[in-house]
Design a protein around this nucleic acid. Structure first.
Lengths: 213, 213
DNA sequence: AAAAGTCTGTTGCATTTGCAACAAAAACGT
DNA sequence: ACGTTTTTGTTGCAAATGCAACAGACTTTT
């Protein structure tokens, strides 16, 4: 699957500011490698410079849930666990990727100059993280697979300002993201096609009709 | 339903710091009143001093989802919408409550003295909000009603350090929080009782056995 | 170029869930 | 203290979902 424009793009200026303020450590990872374990002690923040990565958690029976996915420009890290945490949260590289890592404390502690840039950066970072969690709750909050798919698709369509778009996740991974059985999801996707609400071929989606959820 | 200790307690010192740093406006609301609309322009942060409130969203067909619930000490506000946002998010008083309101910008902008307290405050606030979103994703991420119930109950049990506890939501509201049909949830609750995994009478729950989800 | 692995797409069947509707208990307001 | 509203608890039935299993397409690795 090809890499796409980030959903919440971090522009170049912001990246430059980030580098200037925080002096990040740059690292590379290849497919399957663990980029970060999000346990309680983790005090790192990362920006994905290239490649894609997933934040996943796996239960004892092997059921995987994709909590979040990261593309070029995504900020991640310190996904504070609510404290239950039996299952580990890990950020795993989906393919070769480059990451900038910084200490979380550096981020929330204002730098010497108390510069505006810094404050805007914190704001952007938190906004991004909060928005993504919010989106996920909104999607997962739908009671049916159809509702989950449509609310996610409508979001993507709006975010990219296009009726046609390519998913940032494989259909397999999408099922894990919306927390549904893959075959059940495929069936629902088929129905949506038959009812001419959308057209889909693998990860390519075209919205034909917007219906209330 | 009686008010309980907050899940993520904000201690008195923190509240004092908050008051000192931000000079909040104090307001009172009675049951059903809208405390805050969480649209994109909203730039307020609130702390619930007494009473309970829910953050809800309602779809066109009347399906209500409880996104979050607030008790004494809960911090809420600026729940950045992901941008789809067809349905409004509102914080509604569940009963008579007192709220402190401050401007979000004041919170993220470091104060004159760049005091440590301020930074810890920001950290605590964000931690709290992030944890709650994370918990919700963790609960909603379970594929079955049983899984949702148990992961939530285990969390509460751990948070309160007790096998027996009272839910912070009515069963009706709990169904909306875990995004399930109430009757289906009641059925599942009954089964959990029959299988002696827990004992429940209305909002009073006792965990008997911890099983893998 | 072949082999291994992943991803898409599909189906039958058992189970879970949602929907609609109702009754009793509890909480609330005046 | 009374009537009103909310909440808990239940059921039958239809619809949605999960599970298991399989085949072909596509990618990546060797």
């Amino acid at each position: 699957m090809k890499t796409l424009q980030p959903l919440t793009p971090i522009n170049k200026t912001l990246l430059d500011d980030f580098a200037a303020c925080f002096k990040p450590v740059k690292k590379n990872y290849s497919r399957g490698e663990v980029i970060m374990r999000l346990d309680d002690d983790n005090k790192s923040v990362g920006i994905l410079i290239s490649g894609t990565a997933h934040l996943i958690t796996t239960t004892f029976d092997g059921t995987k849930t994709i909590i979040d996915y990261f593309e070029q420009g995504s900020i991640f890290g310190r996904r504070f666990s609510p404290g239950t945490q039996t299952d580990p949260y890990t950020v795993i590289a989906k393919n070769r990727c480059t990451v900038w890592l910084v200490d979380y404390l550096k981020v929330i502690t204002p730098c010497e100059k108390r510069c505006d840039k810094h404050i805007r950066l914190i704001d952007t970072m938190l906004l991004t993280m909060a928005q993504r969690a919010q989106l996920h709750v909104e999607v997962l909050g739908k009671r049916t697979i159809r509702g989950k798919l449509l609310s996610y698709f409508y979001y993507l369509s709006k975010a990219r300002s296009a009726r046609t778009f390519t998913l940032p996740l494989s259909l397999s991974d999408l099922a894990d993201y919306i927390s549904a059985d893959r075959s059940a999801m495929m069936r629902e996707l088929k129905k949506l096609n038959e009812e001419k609400i959308l057209i889909s071929h693998a990860c390519k989606i075209t919205i034909l009709k917007i219906i209330p959820l």
